[in-house]
Design a binder for these strands. Structure first.
Lengths: 209, 209
DNA sequence: GGAGATAGATAACGAGTGTTATGTTATACC
DNA sequence: GGTATAACATAACACTCGTTATCTATCTCC
């Protein structure tokens, strides 16, 4: 009675991510994960050598998913997009990764601090790459920034990820949250800033070599 | 060999808070807490009926500590203080509660989502009271706010609490972080805003009844 | 139509868990 | 100066944990 199901590994990871997100890392046992996926405990060890390996893959996937989704949405704006447009769309994509995709990014936010230090070190390059993407985006305007781009990025990450603690679908809109947060981060009205920067970009583009 | 030490309950709570903050809720056993305080496991049950009661007191104390510290520092500014001054000092006090006081507020931020739902419900009034304090503070300027004060407060909480994930004493300054975050939240340069509002407040104060 | 290889299931190991029942010692009081 | 109480310590209970060793059924290939 093998009844082999395809993609069981992905099902196990997805189940584990959802449980980690809601209950925390240590509170979720391998038996709970296996039962949630409809298999027995020993079967986990056909795909993973240790519990740590499960959480490592979840954290890595979380970084990759949110990074890819944000980059995809921002790039889709085209090369003429303003920084304000990029920030609004980027924040919205980050929120989508937290609430509308798999649980990997949300689980990442919730349990990162509590996994073994060796796992944190192992997945840190992926986290750093995503941070650098935003630092570059927020520092893209030449000249004086109001605050250090790295700190500004950390403020943005904190405000965005903290939505996991208070966002309720019934009451709030992810679109409105993204717009409001972009307004705060950019320091002025987003649409006004967008028009201003667009004008500036056109002027630059139409100027000779 | 009783060797009765005073205030053992506080020592146990402090030890537990520090462990919860770094390792998470479920990963910390009662034996680890007891050993950290230099006593044996059974002694815990002289002061607490269940593990849940320990974490409940820690979460409640965390809310009370950060609320009291912020209110104390902001109130010390006096009744003539501007909103900008209050925000800077309030954020600095919140950061002090996270990094320079006991571990209760930091443990609260780290484990709140992972404690049993009944505990979360039980301590929610204290959390709501602190939230309302900031919502009132950020909405204090009459007329048009840029964004909804509740969402603005959530952004502020997220950015502030997220410092637990990236702040390093060697590299960053809590004073600078508080100033920069206030600049972002208030939407303009803090000192400029302070002077503007101070002027406004004086005008209001000197105006007849 | 055997032979591996694949994809699991079963059962057990030692260690650790929250919790309880009971023992022990110092101190305060009359 | 005995006694009650406060403040712990000791030891055990039933359970769960991550992990491993071993077994079984299905599929592929020649």
């Amino acid at each position: 009675m093998a009844d082999p199901r395809p993609e069981l590994k992905e099902l196990l990871l997805h189940t584990a991510a959802r449980l980690f997100r809601t209950r925390g890392y240590a509170a979720v046992s391998l038996r709970t994960i296996a039962a949630g996926a409809g298999v027995t405990t020993g079967s986990l060890y056909y795909y993973f050598n240790h519990k740590d390996q499960i959480v490592k893959e979840i954290l890595d996937t979380g970084h990759k998913q949110v990074h890819a989704e944000v980059k995809r949405c921002v790039s889709a704006l085209g090369p003429r997009a303003t920084r304000a447009e990029k920030v609004v769309v980027g924040v919205r994509a980050h929120l989508a990764a937290l609430f509308e995709m798999d649980s990997y990014p949300a689980a990442n936010v919730r349990i990162f601090a509590h996994v073994p230090a060796a796992i944190r070190r192992a997945v840190r390059p992926g986290r750093r790459a995503y941070e650098e993407y935003w630092i570059d985006l927020l520092a893209s305007r030449k000249g004086a920034n109001r605050v250090d781009p790295r700190q500004l990025t950390m403020f943005l990450f904190g405000a965005t990820n903290w939505t996991l603690e208070w966002y309720r679908e019934k009451r709030d809109s992810l679109d409105a949250i993204a717009n409001n947060l972009a307004v705060v981060i950019l320091g002025e009205d987003a649409t006004t800033l967008a028009r201003t920067e667009e004008k500036f970009e056109r002027a630059v583009a139409s100027a000779p070599g």
